[in-house]
Nucleic acid binder design. Sequence first.
DNA 1: TCTGGGGTCCTTCCGCCA
DNA 2: TCTGTGGCGGAAGGACCC
Length: 380
Amino acid sequence: MSTSRRWIAHLDMDAFYASVELLRYPQLKGLPVVIGGGRRHQPQPRADGTLTFATLRGYTGRGVITTATYAARDLGVHSGMGLMKAALRAPDAVLLPVDFDEYRRYSRLFKAAVAEVAPVIEDRGIDEIYIDLTAVPGAQETVAHDPVGGVRAVAQEIRNNVLRRTGLTCSVGVTPNKLLSKLASELDKPDGLSIVTLHDIPTHIWPLPVRRINGIGPKAGTRLEAMGIRTVGELAAQPRALLIEKFGRAYGAWLHEAAHGRDDRPVVTHSEPVSMSRETTFERDLHAVRDKAELSRIFTSLCGQVALDLQRKGYLGRTIGIKLRFEDFKTVTRDLTLPAPTSDAAAIRQAAGACLKRVDLTRRLRLLGVRAAALSRATG
DNA sequence: TCTGGGGTCCTTCCGCCA
DNA sequence: TCTGTGGCGGAAGGACCC
């Protein structure tokens, strides 16, 4: 018996928030729907019992799209896009407010459904996970001369169970590591299953744009493009030494490994939070002097929310920080480490106030945030 | 028509101390 | 005593992700 092959799955729920909303409002199925913006766009009941939905037409405000249904994406709107811009492209798209409590409920449901089949799960936020399938019964088996038949059946069972328990579809990539699985889960989206082996890298992975790699963002993407490197294959063709010269020892070496599909990170089943924060972007830019009362009220409220979050989850924070974003979008942060950790709203307010005193407040502000870090468990 | 909110991790710099 | 070196915690900023 040979040693088992490592099989890691990446599971990504399809248009998660929007799909949860479609379960609640099935009459919207097939229509362009976007989730985002303020609380003020709840569907309104009509006299006959049916609902009136807000549309993007004439939207004003600073919100962005959190998720869009595939029908909405076909109209050229996508997550991260400002709602005012989206309103010009798709004025008749339905607009729904975000309901995180409901999404978290479905998140627990789909993760429990996966755990019934494969219990080694790494949380990657509300709508995606990694799963180690290596030791799942049947995953190593060959089915009718298909060497990946066993793991395919396991992944299909996971997808079936998620659909059965939630009514939602997902896309799954199965490969020997997390990096490749993350790429593979996008190959056949929505409602797809892709299995990629190391032999498939040149045909399935190398044609993809470098930006698909988890860890290559807008900045690195632009720099690579300037070097004439657009695809993963083009990146893989670069000498390791050149990448290190251009991007530094750590990141350059990682780019080289990533392009060749090499990644030995384990699936991490437990992690502790590092920080907790609350922030808000104002409806209009505020001035430290002219809008002092309003800013002070918001500031105190953010401190209270951070304190409540810490208390509810049973943590204390020793480093308290603030984040300010000015009208020109420049962002600054200030931190203060206390002698002893706290979850007390007044203590957080006082520390955050001391941080605020270290910032020049002549420019108007568009965002204010409060953060607690250096967390420890509040025992007893 | 400017760009949300909640996170993690990395790098750099600086002061302090051995 | 002067200078260098290296570790470390804290602070600030930036890149990236969902």
